[in-house]
Write a protein that binds this DNA or RNA. Structure first.
Lengths: 139, 139
DNA sequence: CATCGCGTGAAGTTATCCGTGAAGAGCGAT
DNA sequence: ATCGCTCTTCACGGATAACTTCACGCGATG
């Protein structure tokens, strides 16, 4: 089961915006892309999906850009994954009539486990981790 | 994050062999494929991967076929997933130098969660579940 | 109205998944 | 030894999704 780079890009983007969230200023796609090493044109599409899920919002025109639509503590990794893929965890087995029931239950167990784990990780926490590391370097 | 049908097929195949494990007799690919609604030629490839990981073994010639290489209770869903894909959970982010450290840690957390969850589900358990359901129908 | 940056669709290029087919190799029976 | 059964292996091809880039339109600001 492999995660696409898209998920990673999306998470990096939200993390980048979360770091800038304190300032309250918007961030240009170009700068965000450069800061996180994401192909700019691809990032735009990802941001649109994040925006559709109300995780981020955009401001047009000069001085425009992107910013988080809510506080970093309210956004989880699960939200981001659900925004770019339909679900955190998916398998054709669950909708396949020829898959034995007991196996379906096993897949569902995994699904729930993933969902819960992904929803436990929020971006406030991630930002604090990096701040923590900065402090250690400082000492 | 989507699981391929291959994982599902592999799990079904092992489940099918686990059910037949009590008899100690081998199962032909054809029969296993028909019983689990798996394309026969595709199942062959999957079985070879399972064999490489020592989860199943094969017998050639007449009266040949496949059977489990160990007891159903010793085979977990995690083993099967690792056999057909490299790992239970994988993401390019972990090997990407431009992915922020704190995000990598988050992915690793998910990875560990998945691994543990998948290793908690063994096929003895799954077979017992189906037996349980049979009994309920009988009543 | 000029400039800057988002918005959108399309196009193309890989990669991977999924499945098929045919020829090769071991085992048992006749 | 030969033949039939079954696994083994390799190679191919279509379909689908992932990834990336390009070109142009729209909105806001000054």
């Amino acid at each position: 089961m492999k995660l696409s780079v898209k998920s990673d890009y999306a998470a990096r983007a939200v993390l980048g915006l979360a770091r800038a969230h304190a300032g309250g200023r918007s961030m240009r796609v170009e700068d965000l892309a450069r800061g996180q090493s994401i192909p700019p044109n691809y990032l735009i599409q990802i941001l649109i999906e994040l925006k559709a899920r109300r995780l981020v919002k955009s401001v047009r025109g000069k001085e425009g850009g992107y910013l988080l639509a809510m506080r970093p503590s309210e956004i989880t990794l699960g939200d981001v994954l659900r925004a770019v893929h339909g679900q955190v965890f998916d398998t054709p087995a669950l909708t396949d009539g020829s898959c034995p029931t007991e196996l379906k239950q096993a897949w569902q167990t995994l699904q729930q486990t993933m969902d819960r784990a992904a929803d436990c990780i929020n971006f406030q926490h991630l930002v604090e981790q990096s701040a923590e590391r900065e402090k250690m370097y400082y000492i």
